[in-house]
Each structure stands twice: as structure tokens, then as C-alpha cells.
């Protein structure tokens, strides 16, 4: 077959290969349809908490992975902290850092992959909600929605108190909420399993 006739065929084949699978996007659930339940009497497990937690309207799963978020997030930045762990900033829009989350991967993971278990997931934006609690919520609302925290740290930081919730079965930290001491408002929500 002459090369001139082959070229259009090759081009079409290339075009077809290029229309390969594009990572799927999970539907975001409107706020009024998101699951909110009464806090369990003896505290939460990681799985129960994940079911009432949403990021950008997408319900989290346990364990949290990037793929479980719908493969919509790419790594925008990464930086190594002093303790040797790497923190990744993930987001949907590489042109904007408005709506992003920070994550840390599970211990021992050499490199982040879509299926790496995320041990910490925290956000400074309004896009994260846990059982209806979002950025700016009042500390009383936090207790009403999530129950009494297992511990409140008032001394480590000057400005914020850290409310910690442990998994009732494993005893691992599954939720940390930073509340500003002065006005009692939520400033950071951090989910995880560490």
C-alpha cells in the first residue's frame, strides 16, 4: 500500500486512540440532599463518618482515595514537611487554588496514586462538610451534629482549639476540627485515619 494512502488511515487511527477513556466525574449531590444523621451514642467509626462526609458534593468513601472522589482531582502542589511526610494539594482546576484540599497518603506509600489510601484529608474551603458541619459552623452546632469530641486541645495553639474524634473501634483519629477560640467558629475540618 502506498504511503500516501496509509497516512490518512494512520491519522484516523491516532485520532481514535486519542479518544481514550477520560477519567469519570462523580455527580455532586446538592446540599439539601446530603445525608445527615444523629451522632451515634458511643462515637463514630471511620466508615460511618465517611458516609456523612462530602467534598464538592461528592460523598466520601472509606478508605478515602482520589479515585473514590471521582477521578476529578489532580495534584496541584506537593511539599515535604519537616517530619518527612509529603503533603499534596489536590484540586479540579489547575488555574485556580480556590477549591482544593490537602491530603497525606498512607504511611509507607512511596508515591501517590489514585488508589493510595489517604490518611489525612483537610480543607480550608466551604466545600467540605461532615454531617452538615461546614466551615464557619458554630462549636455548639459541631457538638450537636457530631457528638462530644474525644478530646479538646486548647493549649497547643493560641488561636484555635482542636476537637478530636476517635474511631470507637480502633481508637484511631478520624476527625479533627479546628475551632477559633475567640468566636467559636470552625476553621479547618480534617478527616482521616491515623
Amino acid at each position: 500500500m502506498k504511503i500516501r494512502k496509509l497516512i490518512p488511515i494512520i491519522m484516523c487511527a491516532l485520532c481514535l486512540t486519542a479518544c481514550a477513556d477520560i477519567p469519570e466525574v462523580r455527580e455532586s449531590i446538592p446540599e439539601d440532599e446530603q445525608t445527615v444523621i444523629a451522632p451515634p451514642e458511643n462515637g463514630w467509626t471511620a466508615e460511618e463518618l465517611a458516609k456523612v462526609s462530602y467534598f464538592d458534593g461528592v460523598q466520601l468513601s472509606y478508605p478515602i482515595t482520589l479515585r473514590s472522589l471521582g477521578s476529578a482531582y489532580g495534584v496541584l502542589l506537593d511539599f515535604k514537611s519537616s517530619d518527612g511526610d509529603t503533603t499534596y494539594s489536590i484540586g479540579k482546576d489547575i488555574m485556580s487554588l480556590d477549591n482544593y484540599a490537602n491530603i497525606r497518603a498512607s504511611d509507607g506509600a512511596a508515591e501517590l496514586s489514585p488508589d493510595t489510601e489517604i490518611t489525612e484529608f483537610w480543607s480550608y474551603s466551604e466545600n467540605i462538610s461532615v454531617n452538615g458541619i461546614k466551615m464557619g459552623a458554630d462549636k455548639d452546632a459541631v457538638i450537636l451534629a457530631l457528638g462530644e469530641p474525644d478530646s479538646i486541645d486548647d493549649t497547643s495553639y493560641d488561636v484555635v482549639s482542636v476537637y478530636t474524634y476517635l474511631d470507637r473501634n480502633t481508637g484511631r483519629t478520624i476527625l479533627e476540627i479546628n475551632v477559633i477560640k475567640e468566636n467559636g467558629c470552625v476553621t479547618v475540618i480534617s478527616l482521616g485515619d491515623k
Binding site: A18, C19, I22, P23, V25, S28, G70, S71, A72, Y73, G74, G91, K92, D93, I94, M95, S96
Partner: peptide, 13 residues
């Protein structure tokens, strides 16, 4: 375009 697509991935086709 990606940023109206709800993802970092745009719709190439």
C-alpha cells in the same frame, strides 16, 4: 473546557 466540566479533565472530543 475543564473548569466548567467539574473536573481537571476537559472533554476532548
Amino acid at each position: 473546557m475543564a473548569h466548567v466540566n467539574g473536573s481537571q479533565a476537559g472533554d476532548f472530543v
